[in-house]
Amino acid sequence: MVKLTYKNGLLYTNLLLCHDGKEVLVEDIIIDTGAFHTILSPVFLEELDTEVALDDEIVNAYGLGGGICSSLRKRIDKISFGNISIDNVRVDFGEIDPKDRINGLLGLDLLKASKVIIDVVEDKIVLKNDI
């Protein structure tokens, strides 16, 4: 189970990125079931101090207002939130908010891959198998 924080009308959690033996904690990630793919600020890619790999790709994302922004889609060894972990996952690193108020969006790709259920009554995420 992962306890979520409810603030400003949104649900938040923290993510731990593990890649090439390094770990970076990304705090205050918005749970966004409307986001097709998880995206994090490129600041955290810099903190991982990793290099661009041959299988990385540049992708375009379309926001709510129709704006287009490019990001780097990179394979990460492991992402964890609470007791939930996903190995060998591709994550986008790019600009989410031009004013840098948002660290990232936990999108439908990772929510589905982790097989979780979001409980909006008790502000928590649970593994489907734990119910």
Score class of each variant (00 low, 15 high):
3 K>F: 11
5 T>L: 13
6 Y>L: 13
6 Y>T: 06
6 Y>D: 04
8 N>I: 05
9 G>Y: 09
10 L>I: 08
10 L>N: 14
11 L>Q: 04
13 T>D: 07
14 N>V: 03
15 L>T: 06
15 L>C: 06
16 L>Y: 10
17 L>R: 09
17 L>K: 08
18 C>V: 13
18 C>W: 05
18 C>Q: 14
20 D>F: 05
21 G>E: 09
25 L>D: 11
26 V>E: 10
26 V>H: 11
28 D>W: 08
28 D>K: 15
29 I>C: 03
29 I>W: 02
29 I>E: 00
29 I>M: 04
32 D>I: 12
33 T>C: 06
34 G>V: 04
35 A>L: 05
35 A>I: 06
37 H>R: 15
38 T>W: 03
38 T>P: 03
40 L>C: 08
41 S>K: 05
43 V>I: 15
45 L>G: 01
47 E>W: 09
48 L>F: 11
51 E>G: 08
51 E>F: 11
53 A>Q: 15
54 L>S: 14
55 D>V: 10
56 D>K: 10
57 E>Y: 02
61 A>L: 12
63 G>Q: 03
63 G>I: 01
63 G>V: 03
64 L>A: 15
65 G>H: 10
66 G>H: 12
68 I>D: 07
68 I>Q: 15
69 C>V: 14
70 S>N: 14
70 S>Q: 15
75 R>I: 06
75 R>F: 02
76 I>R: 04
76 I>A: 05
78 K>Q: 14
79 I>N: 03
80 S>K: 15
82 G>D: 10
83 N>C: 07
87 D>K: 13
88 N>V: 04
89 V>D: 00
89 V>N: 01
91 V>I: 15
92 D>W: 01
94 G>R: 05
95 E>A: 01
97 D>E: 10
98 P>K: 10
102 I>Q: 10
104 G>W: 06
106 L>M: 10
108 L>F: 07
109 D>G: 02
109 D>Y: 05
110 L>Q: 06
111 L>V: 09
112 K>R: 14
116 V>F: 01
118 I>D: 01
118 I>H: 04
118 I>F: 05
121 V>K: 10
121 V>P: 00
125 I>W: 03
126 V>H: 07
126 V>P: 00
127 L>W: 00
128 K>N: 04
128 K>V: 04
129 N>L: 08
130 D>V: 09
130 D>Q: 13
